[in-house]
Computed example of a mutant assay.
Amino acid sequence: MIGSPDRDAAVAGVAKEYYAAMLDADGDRLRNIFHHKAIIVGHFGGELEQSTLEAFIASTPDARTGEGPFECRVDNMALVGDIAVITLGGYSYGHWFSDHLSLVEIEGQWRIVSKTFFCHPGKGEGH
């Protein structure tokens, strides 16, 4: 089974909920979206970062360095069976990010099992 409009919408909905929960630094919502063993890896400021879900959640309040504008767009999505990979472009706090989220459908719920990210150098919208 390769995606359907309802399944595509469900996966995109989880990805957008992740972005909103991250901006709100809402640990409970993030715990509902991510699998508890998820891993987060990526580059920020040229440095490789790797963290567990709990370490990532603990860092989200520190990321709140200002007010909008905020943007989140789905750049790409692949859904096959009970797995999905979605790429988000997100602008927040003066930086443009690319997030790649891997999701697995577990007991009827889509959960993020990994997040890889890249913070684009420089500031400004439109990367």
Rank of each mutant, 00 (worst) to 15 (best):
L48M: 15
S51D: 08
R73V: 06
L30H: 02
P121R: 13
R29P: 02
M77Y: 02
V85Y: 03
E49N: 14
G45C: 02
G122K: 04
G13F: 09
I57W: 09
D62E: 14
V74S: 07
L79V: 15
V104H: 06
S92M: 15
K16Y: 10
P61M: 10
A84W: 07
A38I: 06
P61G: 04
Y18L: 07
K115G: 06
H120N: 05
V80W: 06
R29N: 06
V85W: 02
V113L: 08
A84Y: 02
A15M: 10
V41D: 13
K16V: 01
N76Q: 10
A63Y: 12
G124T: 06
D28Y: 00
A20L: 12
F118H: 13
H35V: 00
F70A: 03
G90D: 14
D26G: 00
L48Q: 11
I39Q: 10
G45D: 12
D6I: 11
D6C: 05
D82A: 07
E107R: 13
V80K: 10
E17A: 15
A84I: 08
D28E: 15
T87V: 13
A58Y: 08
P5C: 07
L88N: 06
G81M: 00
H43E: 13
H127T: 06
G126L: 05
D24I: 05
R64M: 14
I40E: 01
R29C: 07
E54K: 01
G42R: 06
K37R: 15
I83F: 10
G46P: 05
E107W: 04
G46V: 07
Y18W: 13
